[in-house]
């Protein structure tokens, strides 16, 4: 599903990602962890080209995202993204947030988009909020709407950048539950998270980034109980 080959990213003289190569299969749930500033967000944003890699190639579903000929805007339709701070459209209702892109970009009829949108709201447990505006929702509700908004485009792949980091503790679970359900439907997911519970329970693989390098990858239980590298050991000692 995803193939990253010799990815480098620099901001000016600051090298943020160094020589990252990784393949991720369809249906795989991958958790990305690492210290703050290690390049996790940048790595995720290089997948849908919100950041342009300095060199290397990124392919998603056999589309070479980094090739000059690729219509990146079109390719992004199939890559959902969920942000730490939700970024819902505040001037649109919850349902309009879900239906705008499918209507505008995929050309769905309004009735069709609404029906689909309501189904998705039901799935994330917010069917009663269709007419509400984002500002009236709690953080956990906003993030569930944001997930539904991304799913409304019927993506092949979902990227999550610390989806629960901006939430009050009591709202973390409702968002993680939605993500777990999604994982069980076979969605390919790349999740930057500090929720080790989620990583252990749901992820098929953990990627550990440090100072822009992919230092260690492994099966979650093995990684958390018996990390192979010093850097991973140090990191886990600090957070667990």
């Amino acid at each position: 599903m995803i193939k990253v080959d010799k990815l480098f990213k620099q901001f000016g003289n600051n090298e943020v990602l160094t020589d990252i190569s990784i393949e991720i299969n369809k249906g795989e749930v991958v958790s990305i962890i690492g210290p703050s500033g290690s390049g996790k967000s940048t790595f995720l944003r290089c997948i849908n080209l919100l950041e342009k890699p300095t060199s290397g190639t990124v392919s998603v579903a056999d589309q070479v995202m980094t090739a000059p000929k690729t219509n990146v805007t079109k390719a992004r339709e199939k890559i959902g993204m969920v942000f730490q701070h939700f970024h819902l459209f505040p001037h649109l209702t919850v349902l309009e947030n879900l239906t705008y892109a499918p209507m505008k970009v995929r050309g769905l009829k309004k009735a069709e988009a609404n029906e689909k949108g309501l189904q998705l709201l039901e799935r994330v447990g917010l069917a009663d909020k269709e007419k509400a505006y984002p500002s009236s929702l709690s953080g956990g509700q906003k993030q569930r709407v944001a997930i539904a908004r991304a799913l409304a485009m019927e993506p092949d792949l979902m990227l999550f950048d610390e989806p629960t980091s901006a939430l009050d503790p009591e709202m973390v679970k409702e968002v993680l539950d939605v993500m777990k359900d999604l994982a069980h439907t076979g969605m390919t997911m790349l999740v930057v998270t500090h929720e080790m519970g989620f990583a252990r329970e749901v992820a098929d693989r953990v990627l550990f980034l440090d100072e822009g390098r992919l230092v260690e990858t492994g099966e979650p239980n093995a990684f958390f109980t018996d990390p192979q590298t010093e850097r991973a050991k140090d990191f886990l000692a600090k957070i667990l």
């Binding site: 919100l50 079109k74 992004r76 993204m81 942000f83 970024h87 705008y100 505008k104 485009m153």
Partner: peptide
Amino acid sequence: VDRGQTEAAIALGIPYRP
């Protein structure tokens, strides 16, 4: 306008003009 609005729109595949 929050930069995140642009990023969310771009990530959804919405073209520049709309």
